[in-house]
């Protein structure tokens, strides 16, 4: 009993700020405004299939780009000396010390039609790029914001790989390419799964990035939910918002458990 004592503040905190809101979401999703149990909200959420599809599609693209960009970085850093590694890791985390909104706004000023990027392109007599308020801008924002969450877990798995495994593979005849494809990459899959989870989940539920960089034209699930709660008198519908949130939560949980099974590793992957 005494050993459990220090955990009490955490349990209380989680109960108030995680469990209670979750219960509320479920209750709202399954009731009418006057308190009757109903499945109507959940069925109504089906109307937004396109929004769900767009959210998952963009998040998936962003996750794949993060993996393609992040894995080589994590691998390259893990092979450097200790001093280089600590500086590099700090530089990767450094932008995160700045406010999330500010970072995202900064991209607006870079990619907007009269922004920095197009000024440079104009100066070089190159055709202007129309990026702002397109899905590409949303993906760009997601990749920029969540890339460190891909790099860090992969890096921390690779750095802990037993060097003697690599020597054993070399000893058994594998060249550097085979050492990577047969040993290092398969053993780093738990890190890849964590990274994918940590990028995909916030990407799929973001609403700030799509609003600022996507111009709010193509609504994502996050925007949809926000609208139901903060959307003024006409749009205010917490029951529908909760239902949409619940549906998304279920889909994400299914995705993650499938991926954990697919990974098949012995290590547990932490769901966010």
């Amino acid at each position: 009993m005494t050993k459990k004592l220090p955990a009490i503040p955490y349990v209380v905190w989680m109960a108030i700020f995680v469990v209670a809101p979750l219960v509320l979401v479920v209750v709202y999703a399954l009731t009418t405004p006057d308190g009757q149990v109903t499945l109507a909200n959940m069925l109504e959420a089906r109307k937004f299939l396109g929004v769900f599809g767009r959210s998952f599609g963009l998040a998936l693209i962003a996750t794949v780009i993060c993996l393609i960009l992040g894995y080589p970085v994590a691998y390259a850093f893990s092979r450097e000396g200790e001093r280089f590694r600590s500086v590099a890791m700090m530089l990767i985390m450094l932008p995160r010390w700045m406010n999330f909104l500010l970072r995202t706004y900064a991209w607006v000023t870079i990619i907007e039609n009269t922004g920095l990027l197009n000024q440079v392109l104009g100066f070089l007599h190159l055709p202007k790029l129309h990026i702002i308020n397109t899905p590409a801008a949303v993906v760009l924002g997601m990749v920029y914001d969540y890339l460190p969450f891909m790099i860090l877990p992969i890096y921390s798995v690779i750095i802990k790989l037993d060097g003697s495994l690599i020597e054993a593979a070399r000893d058994l005849g594998a060249d550097s390419y085979r050492v990577f494809t047969k040993i290092i990459f398969p053993l780093s899959i738990p890190g890849v799964i964590s990274g994918v989870t940590m990028v995909f989940v916030p990407s799929v539920s973001t609403f700030v990035i799509s609003k600022l960089l996507g111009g709010g034209k193509d609504m994502l699930v996050g925007d949809l939910i926000e609208l139901q709660f903060l959307g003024g008198a006409g749009a205010y519908n917490p029951q529908l918002g909760s239902a949409v949130a619940l549906v998304m939560m279920i889909i994400i949980l299914i995705c993650m458990s499938l991926m954990n099974r697919f990974g098949g590793g012995d290590e547990e992957v932490v769901l966010l």
Binding site: S164, E167, A168, A169, L172, D175, I183, D266
Partner: peptide
């Protein structure tokens, strides 16, 4: 000659088996 091209094989102190 790199290790992967030598006609020797090693049994490592901590076995270094491939866990996957």
């Amino acid at each position: 000659v790199p290790p992967n091209k030598r006609a020797v094989n090693t049994v490592f102190q901590k076995y270094a088996l491939f866990t996957h």
